[in-house]
Design a protein around this nucleic acid. Sequence first.
DNA 1: TTAACTGGTATACTCAATGATACTGGTTAC
DNA 2: GTAACCAGTATCATTGAGTATACCAGTTAA
Lengths: 111, 111
Amino acid sequence: MKRDQAEELKSLQDTLYFIGGKWRIPVINSLCNGNRRFREIERSIPGITTRMLSKELKEMEMNKLVKRTVYDDTPVSVEYEPTEYCRTFGNIIMEMINWGRDHRKFIQKNK
Amino acid sequence: MKRDQAEELKSLQDTLYFIGGKWRIPVINSLCNGNRRFREIERSIPGITTRMLSKELKEMEMNKLVKRTVYDDTPVSVEYEPTEYCRTFGNIIMEMINWGRDHRKFIQKNK
DNA sequence: TTAACTGGTATACTCAATGATACTGGTTAC
DNA sequence: GTAACCAGTATCATTGAGTATACCAGTTAA
């Protein structure tokens, strides 16, 4: 069975496209870590602005990565939940965390 | 042993920063697939421009991801080789290819 | 001699992603 | 009453990543 490099490249680029900007992966990670409320997610990602988080969550809702639920208590509270589909990024994120960790060690050692 | 979410996020963001733009991962992938010559790499990544590939390879050389060797035959030929460090992206790339592939199937099924 | 290959560089431009800042309307605690 | 929380929206400015296009000097093949 031959490896189809063009097909692999296409898959790779699809993934990169889907991951898109700077915040998608951190937001997925935050949701998968159990953060649910808007401000809670915001606080869990230092540096993100309200605007970017809002945009990101909207797009992710459209892409079925996140489920938004409004609870009608007073005051209204909103919950964001990662879908099963969202969780399929688990392996990629894990590998990225591992790489970043090893990279840091590597830098420290060679400094 | 507790998971340190801040540390994980930092590792994640370091990795994302290192991966950077649109072409880094495709170039690494191409090199790891055995492409060595400039035009060969260029052709293996449809859509990339000469300028972007040139920039990418220079940065990657500075970051010790790639080794550039000039052979003094006529005409001069140049070879790019992935370093061991470059190959540490193997797992991430593999997971990304898998995700993209599954995603395509998922889209097709639900269409 | 003309075209096509090699390995790139130079210049100009554009636009979409991100950042900065302010604001809203409602609620709760001191 | 005022400060701080919630969940965002609105507007504007910026910037750099990426694109487009042309070009260079040398070599090889028809």
